[in-house]
Every structure is written in structure tokens, then in C-alpha cells.
């Protein structure tokens, strides 16, 4: 796939929509298109968080395994979502498993590459952080709502 096409796909995702063309070109150098068949794992708990995925189509189940309970899905991420926030925070390690629950297409960003570009260009780093913070906060709020068990009226 050409770089221009990949740039367009990246800019179509809500996370990078409206990103300036220079920054877009820079982050595109860290990106690739990936596809996961249903049942395959994007990553496992404990592994190095070396990627972050922007979901284009499909559904990814975030899971934790517990003795005697098998795998427990605590959240799913679908179209336009983000999987792999641990790329942002040391020690850059996944804290759960991520499994493709459906045929899933995503943009994969090499976390080391993206961190390196953010470190070397603080303006880009600030822009990337500003874009990752809202989905992080949204996820925090959603988790709180989930914990409140609002349907238990």
C-alpha cells in the first residue's frame, strides 16, 4: 500500500482526524495495516507493549484469565476504537490479553518508533498526547459506570 493511501486511512480514524500533514507523514512512518482472523490474539498479558492498534473494522475482546473461571472479557473495542494504551506508559507491558472476536482490520503503530518520534519532536509528542488523553479519560469514565452496576435498580 502506498504511503499516501495509508496516510488517508490514518487520517480517517477519529484519533488522528485533522492531524497536520507534517505530523501525519511522520506518524505514518510508524504505521502498517494489519488483519486478525477471529480467535487470534493481538497480544498477551505480560508481553512488551510494542504496538498500538487503531481499529478500522471488527471487534477486539480484552480479556483476563482467572484460575477456575477461564478467560473473562471485561471490555470490547470495535470500529474506530483503540487497543493497546500501555504503549504510552512505562514499563510498556500489556496488562491483559487482546483477542480478535471478529475478523478485524487495524492500523498498527510501532510503539518504539512512535515514542522515538514524539521524544525527538515535543510538538508532535504534545499533539499525540492530547489525542490519546480523551479516549483514555472516556475509558476511565466508562469503567466507573460499569462498576456502578446501574442496571441493578
Amino acid at each position: 500500500m502506498s504511503v499516501e493511501t495509508l496516510e488517508r486511512i490514518i487520517s480517517d480514524h477519529p484519533l488522528f482526524h485533522g492531524l497536520g500533514s507534517d505530523f501525519l507523514t511522520t506518524v505514518t512512518r510508524c504505521a502498517s495495516n494489519v488483519r486478525f482472523a477471529p480467535g487470534t490474539y493481538l497480544f498477551h498479558e505480560g508481553e512488551t507493549a510494542d504496538q498500538v492498534y487503531l481499529i478500522r473494522e471488527g471487534l477486539v475482546a480484552l480479556e483476563i484469565a482467572a484460575p477456575g473461571q477461564g478467560r473473562m472479557t471485561f471490555q470490547t473495542v470495535g470500529r474506530r476504537g483503540i487497543v493497546g494504551m500501555s504503549w504510552l506508559v512505562p514499563p510498556y507491558r500489556w496488562t491483559f490479553d487482546a483477542r480478535a472476536a471478529e475478523d478485524t482490520r487495524a492500523l498498527a503503530f510501532d510503539a518504539g518508533c512512535l515514542r522515538g518520534k514524539c521524544d525527538s519532536d515535543p510538538a508532535l509528542g504534545y499533539e499525540v498526547m492530547k489525542r490519546f488523553m480523551p479516549p483514555l479519560i472516556e475509558r476511565l469514565h466508562a469503567t466507573r459506570l460499569q462498576m456502578l452496576d446501574v442496571y441493578d435498580a
Binding site: 477461564g70 478467560r71 473473562m72 470495535g78 470500529r79 466508562a142
Partner: peptide, 23 residues
């Protein structure tokens, strides 16, 4: 359709209903 608490047999969305708005 989404559920707050999934079972192993559930293959759909998991999470609060508002998370479905994005897709």
C-alpha cells in the same frame, strides 16, 4: 447490543452502552 458483564459464551460487545456510539 452490549453487556456490562460477559459470560464465556457471549461473543458480542462488552462495556457500557455509550461506548457503542463511537462505532
Amino acid at each position: 447490543v452490549t453487556v456490562d458483564r460477559a459470560t464465556e459464551a457471549w461473543h458480542g460487545h462488552v462495556g457500557v452502552v455509550t461506548s457503542l456510539l463511537a462505532g
